[in-house]
Design a binder for these strands. Structure first.
Lengths: 375, 375
DNA sequence: CGTCTTTTGTATAATATTGCACAAAACTAG
DNA sequence: CTAGTTTTGTGCAATATTATACAAAAGACG
């Protein structure tokens, strides 16, 4: 930190928090001379490139800087429950190539790590690669104690509890590795992509399950043991209180998650196994599916209102499979938030849908990897 | 920041995050030479003093450092609804003197600021003063947008909405002023006093009202507009849902706050106006009061569980008038948290009572003031 | 075209910090 | 007492940063 003003500058630009030399001087507190010198060094070294100049307000327009997308590449890996995906990105977040592989999280972790290692090796020899791979980010579908690098039990990742994933994978592929849980990384990707200047941010994923990532002061809030944002298992007093996957009754998930809506729709005679099926029924215009989404939306709205009351984010983004229902899903969330929260908390609150892309998870993992790049 | 390694060192020691030179080197990243030099300068300037040496583990014991309590004094001011209190502190947090004054927050803010100004002036000539007053911290019983220095409407502070309190008071007394709301400052005081190494901390105040302060990464989480931690008005599905002071129904406060318990006890024929009366009945051993506290405790437990699920603090402290009931108040909170939250979130969670002191509010204000001291 | 404004570049002396090597101090354990 | 461990102090050359002042660049505006 002391050693490297250049690193601080690079990180600011990379995160979109500074675009011009003036921004950089203001954000870092560096003097003009130092900023000038370091910036030109970064450009000479190929880390930064000149971007478009900012609009002028009567004076010389400010020169904009961008990260050189082709200085390095990174790999983002998303481990799903039955499939893994490793994508190669340049530093602008553009996807260059990908590898998909089957996996079984209940099997020996070593097998899964083999798959990841293979996928990274394939990407390393990809024709699309534009620069050396500098780091790998990994998204896992389980709560993670980032301090120890271990998944928390119980989760879908049986047998992983004693493995320091970061270290184990790093030793295999010989690159810096960063790991976090999937929802945190969706949150990170959405913030970096679409809300780079928002420092108090929340992302709720409503798909088969329900989870949430929270950013405070521009950083992911992981909590003391890595479980912050666990609103899927906040319990409601609603009757009847259906049994949840976690063994408790009346959790948010048991009312509103994809698996719960699918369960309800099956009860009405539909063939509906998961969140994807729920959305298919909704797309077909089945009124029962819309009704289920509306009900789910309002239950989600309750915890979203709790979240807004407690965390007071500036932007709240709803993502995940069920968020593709758009306003059908936002309506209840908006309703409950505006009904229940202080005007002061909601006045400036933006409630939005996530970018419609399947790559958000791997992109988040890639963002994490980019944070690992030493300059 | 760049200019002053000494300042960084001083702040670390002041906050209890570093006690020895080794700690300081590790926390700041400074080199040994710089640390040695800056520390001796700080001692020469009277900012730090030598404390007791740490226990040795087979080698030379580390020299401990403390802030010199008598380098400066600060004033913490707590504005209550009918009374204000300004206390003079040294930098160890020892209270040296105090001034109490009547006030009416519904009156012209100028009158109140006059009172505060007078109180500070009195403390400045107090015989107990051990050093020049360096800054003033102010606790206000209303949500505050720290960015603009203004209280949020609606609140008990009618007529204050267009006043930048920090600036207005600073102009009057000619000292740096910091302002925050009361619950945040209780949280800050409790953390600094009793949990200096805890960086993910939460404090719930249950008195006449209910509020909460949250610290993430060692800093108060104020949220985008200063309303973070508003769990007093999270609504529950419990029936009947009593009308709350805020106009909504079924809020946490309407079930569990001091005013609500007093309302219930009045309904049972007791003469009970506020939290203090509730505690008096409890101390007298009235079973109805204990029952009310138990009910309140379990409602509070629900939002506390929500808080733990969302924020995952390492330490949760319960304070305020009703917390003097001790286990009677903690029981329900513990019960609901352990029942509802993930084991991972509760395994290492400490749930404790706040220090039993009326000075926590002014001490929090003083802590805020200490943060304003330029070194 | 000149004037104004804003942004950037450069030079310089004064400070501040790092990394390293070596030494000394102050303990514990046996 | 001796050997080992941990912590602290010091000196020095190489870097890094600041503050400041002045100059130049690049646009808007009339």
């Amino acid at each position: 930190m002391r050693k490297d003003a250049g690193s601080a500058i690079y990180q600011l630009v990379r995160r979109g928090q500074a675009e011009t030399q003036r921004d950089i001087e203001a954000e870092t507190g560096l003097s003009r001379g130092t900023a000038t010198q370091r910036i030109s060094e970064l450009i000479a070294a190929g880390l930064l490139i000149e971007g478009p100049t900012r609009a002028s307000g009567g004076g010389r327009p400010a020169r904009g800087f961008l990260v050189n997308p082709h200085y390095r590449n990174v790999v983002g890996v998303d481990l799903g429950e039955s499939q893994g995906r490793a994508c190669l990105f340049d530093l602008s977040g553009a996807k260059l190539d990908q590898q998909v592989f089957a996996l079984d999280l209940r099997a020996d972790p070593g097998v899964t790590l083999d798959r990841v290692e293979d996928a990274v090796a394939m990407l390393d020899v990809s024709a699309m690669r534009s620069a050396p791979i500098a780091a790998v980010g990994l998204s896992v579908p389980a709560p993670l104690d980032v301090a120890s690098g271990r998944v928390a039990m119980p989760s879908v990742m049986y047998g992983w509890e004693n493995l320091d994933i970061r270290q184990a994978l790093g030793a295999r592929i010989g690159l810096p590795v960063a790991v976090d849980n999937d929802v945190n990384l969706l949150c990170l990707a959405e913030q970096r992509l679409n809300w780079p200047n928002c420092r108090n941010f929340a992302f709720i994923k409503i798909g088969t399950g329900i989870g949430c990532g929270i950013m405070v002061g521009g950083r992911l809030m992981r909590g003391a043991s890595g479980t912050a944002g666990d609103l899927g298992h906040i319990q409601h007093g609603l009757q009847p209180a259906p049994l949840c996957r976690c063994g408790k009754e009346g959790c948010t998930e048991a009312h509103a998650a994809g698996w719960a809506l699918a369960r309800d729709l099956r009860g009405l005679g539909f063939d509906c196994q998961d969140a994807r099926d729920v959305m298919a029924l909704w797309l077909r215009g089945e009124p029962e599916a819309l009704a289920a989404l509306n009900r789910g939306s309002r239950v989600l709205g309750k915890v979203a209102a709790d979240l807004v009351a407690m965390v007071n984010p500036q932007v709240l983004v709803i993502g995940g499979q069920l968020a593709r229902a758009g306003e059908a899903m936002l309506a209840g969330v908006r309703e409950l938030i505006y009904q229940r929260c202080l005007p002061l908390a909601t006045q400036q609150l933006v409630i939005a849908l996530a970018a419609e892309t399947d790559d958000l998870g791997v992109l988040g993992a890639a963002c994490l990897a980019m944070d690992e790049i030493e300059v």
